[in-house]
Computed example of a mutant assay.
Amino acid sequence: MITVIWDTWLKPGTEREGLRLTRQVWSDMRSFDGYISHQIFIDQDDPGHIIALANWRNRADADAVREKYKDSEMIRQFTPLLARPRERWTTCEDQAS
């Protein structure tokens, strides 16, 4: 299993719509092969900062879904709300800890 971390910064005034679209994107992910689960975190000091952690069966699944979904209507709606491009990290848990 891998965890993909998405770091999102929204433009001021778009926080409500950005969170709504973030929730919709992750709801959509449930229908893709390899998706396991996700969590969304909202920065309490800056509600325009959202971090999503998504668990996938493997990196190939996560990368394939990213490629399929990147031109979706949801992403077309979401992109103009971004203060800067989203960052994405693909991680695995340290099993020694």
Score class of each variant (00 low, 15 high):
residue 18 G to W: 02
residue 90 T to E: 13
residue 77 Q to G: 05
residue 1 M to I: 00
residue 54 A to P: 06
residue 73 E to M: 04
residue 72 S to R: 03
residue 75 I to G: 06
residue 95 Q to K: 13
residue 13 G to T: 03
residue 64 A to G: 12
residue 81 L to N: 11
residue 4 V to F: 07
residue 81 L to V: 03
residue 78 F to E: 00
residue 73 E to I: 03
residue 9 W to Y: 07
residue 91 T to D: 08
residue 6 W to Q: 06
residue 24 Q to P: 00
residue 26 W to P: 03
residue 66 R to V: 03
residue 73 E to Q: 10
residue 36 I to H: 14
residue 12 P to R: 09
residue 86 R to T: 02
residue 64 A to C: 04
residue 17 E to Y: 04
residue 75 I to V: 11
residue 21 L to C: 01
residue 52 A to K: 04
residue 5 I to F: 09
residue 44 Q to S: 14
residue 80 P to L: 07
residue 44 Q to N: 15
residue 22 T to G: 09
residue 50 I to W: 04
residue 66 R to K: 12
residue 72 S to I: 01
residue 24 Q to N: 10
residue 51 I to S: 12
residue 74 M to L: 13
residue 16 R to P: 04
residue 80 P to W: 00
residue 92 C to S: 15
residue 10 L to H: 02
residue 31 S to V: 05
residue 25 V to T: 12
residue 85 P to I: 00
residue 54 A to V: 11
residue 84 R to T: 01
residue 81 L to S: 12
residue 5 I to M: 14
residue 44 Q to T: 10
residue 24 Q to F: 01
residue 56 W to F: 01
residue 56 W to E: 01
residue 76 R to K: 15
residue 69 Y to L: 03
residue 57 R to H: 11
residue 38 H to T: 03
residue 21 L to D: 00
residue 31 S to P: 02
residue 48 G to R: 09
residue 93 E to L: 10
residue 85 P to L: 04
residue 80 P to I: 05
residue 25 V to I: 15
residue 1 M to P: 15
residue 64 A to R: 10
residue 3 T to C: 10
residue 75 I to L: 10
residue 72 S to A: 01
residue 79 T to G: 10
residue 55 N to W: 00
residue 61 D to V: 02
residue 54 A to T: 13
residue 46 D to H: 12
residue 83 A to W: 00
residue 79 T to Y: 11
residue 3 T to V: 11
residue 60 A to L: 10
residue 88 R to D: 03
residue 95 Q to V: 03
residue 90 T to L: 11
residue 79 T to V: 15
residue 42 I to S: 14
residue 96 A to P: 00
residue 35 Y to L: 06
residue 39 Q to H: 15
residue 62 A to N: 09
residue 97 S to G: 15
residue 89 W to I: 03
residue 29 M to D: 08
residue 10 L to R: 06
residue 14 T to Y: 13
residue 3 T to L: 07
residue 3 T to W: 01
residue 9 W to V: 05
residue 97 S to F: 12
residue 78 F to S: 02
residue 64 A to Y: 02
residue 49 H to K: 12
residue 30 R to K: 15
residue 89 W to H: 15
residue 95 Q to M: 14
residue 15 E to R: 14
residue 16 R to K: 14
residue 18 G to Q: 00
residue 3 T to F: 08
residue 87 E to Q: 14
residue 53 L to H: 09
residue 49 H to D: 03
residue 40 I to S: 11
residue 2 I to P: 08
residue 23 R to A: 04
residue 29 M to L: 14
residue 45 D to S: 15
residue 56 W to R: 06
residue 24 Q to L: 10
residue 11 K to S: 09
residue 53 L to D: 02
residue 29 M to G: 10
residue 96 A to G: 10
residue 65 V to Y: 03
